[in-house]
Amino acid sequence: MKTSDFYYDLPQELIAQTPIQQRDASRLMTLDRSTGETRHCHFYDLPDFLRPGDCLILNDSRVLPARLLGQRLPGGGACEVLLLTDRGEGTWECLVRPGRKMRPGAKLSFGDGELTAEVTGEIEGGNRLVRFTYQGIFLEVLERLGKMPLPPYIKAELQDRERYQTVYSRHNGSAAAPTAGLHFTPKLLETIAAKSVGIGYVTLHVGLGTFRPVKEKDITDHTMHSEYCILPQETADLINQTRTAGGRCVCVGTTSCRTLESWAGEDGHMEARSGWTDIYIYPGYRFKVTDALVTNFHLPESTLVMLVSAFAGREHVLAAYQEAVRERYRFFSFGDAMFLY
């Protein structure tokens, strides 16, 4: 298939720049993947579409305030570092700007010297290895000095950084939020649990590769980025019990879906696993365990649109997206949601 097969026309003004005041008041489009039928609701209506005996799987990764603004030493020229992957012993793989002046040996300072760093290497693709020096606990320093790494299509300043975190986020490590989960509130989760829907958690640390455009004309030529994910035993047990009893496994977000599909056996059986996944899901893929999917509206020609199209059919998905444009839905990270079943 061609990458252009997943294009749709999106007016720029429909790209949500800020979160709405009430998380679960966002709009929710439902899509029946067998018929293509859609309905227009709100996210707080989601419990109406879940059945007793289903399980809901959430990604509890937490976004690092991984964008650091500082100065190059000596001289004081401005620099920007975006943390991507912890390589251990104080060294991170990073995106840096300005790249031409951030060669190995370059020294950097952040927060009036509270955090200093040195570029120690350059790796394939242009990313840098940066070794940090600091007093105390690195994550605490990062909380003080770092900014949220918002996607490039969001131009507005985020007033409350917790709005780019899910209410159930626990494990630091993501460079971007698992945005389908941003709609949930503690009360909504309580309502879902009271309906005898099991709730389980996985962890997938979202990388910036999730925003990387597919540049190849043929989708099969695209190289998928790798992300670290964890499937705990209790979640594996919940999924196995749910499916044995005839319930559905409902994944919240493409990240939860990719985690489960990475570790599922051919028969859908789950066992605790952790490791790196570069699973690439596009039409033709046979889902092993995902029975329904909660997700936001994704960028044209992205791997995420391809995953959703694999789940619900390309024609159904693109028709639903065109309907969402007509109905003035809000798109992308701070936008509205879909429930595909």
Score class of each variant (00 low, 15 high):
K2W: 13
K2H: 14
S4Q: 14
L10R: 08
P11Y: 12
A16P: 01
T18N: 12
I20M: 07
I20A: 02
R23G: 01
D24Q: 09
R27V: 02
T30Q: 07
D32S: 11
R39Q: 15
H40A: 10
H42S: 13
P47I: 10
D48W: 07
R51C: 13
C55V: 06
V63C: 03
A66D: 06
L68K: 01
L69N: 11
G75H: 11
A78T: 13
A78D: 15
C79G: 03
E80K: 10
V81G: 01
L82F: 15
L83D: 00
T85G: 00
R87N: 13
G88M: 06
G90C: 08
W92A: 03
W92G: 01
E93K: 12
R97K: 15
G99L: 11
K101N: 12
S109C: 12
E114I: 12
V119K: 01
V119S: 03
G125H: 09
N127T: 15
P152Y: 05
Y153G: 03
K155T: 14
K155R: 14
Q159K: 14
S169A: 15
S169N: 09
G173K: 01
S174Y: 09
T179Q: 02
H183W: 04
T185A: 07
K187Y: 08
L189Q: 06
T191C: 11
I199T: 10
Y201T: 06
G207L: 12
L208T: 12
T210W: 02
K217S: 15
K217V: 12
K217T: 14
I219T: 08
E227M: 03
Y228Q: 05
P232G: 06
T235P: 01
R243K: 15
C251L: 02
T254A: 07
T255F: 10
C257F: 00
R258W: 03
L260H: 00
S262I: 02
M270F: 03
A272I: 05
D278N: 14
I281K: 01
G284A: 05
V289C: 08
T290E: 02
D291A: 10
D291V: 10
D291L: 04
A292C: 07
N296E: 05
N296H: 05
L299T: 05
P300M: 07
P300R: 09
E301T: 13
L307V: 11
A312S: 14
V317W: 04
L318Y: 08
A320L: 04
A320H: 04
Y321I: 00
Y321R: 02
R326W: 13
R328V: 10
F332H: 09
S333K: 05
G335H: 00
G335Y: 00
M338H: 05
Y341Q: 14
Y341F: 13
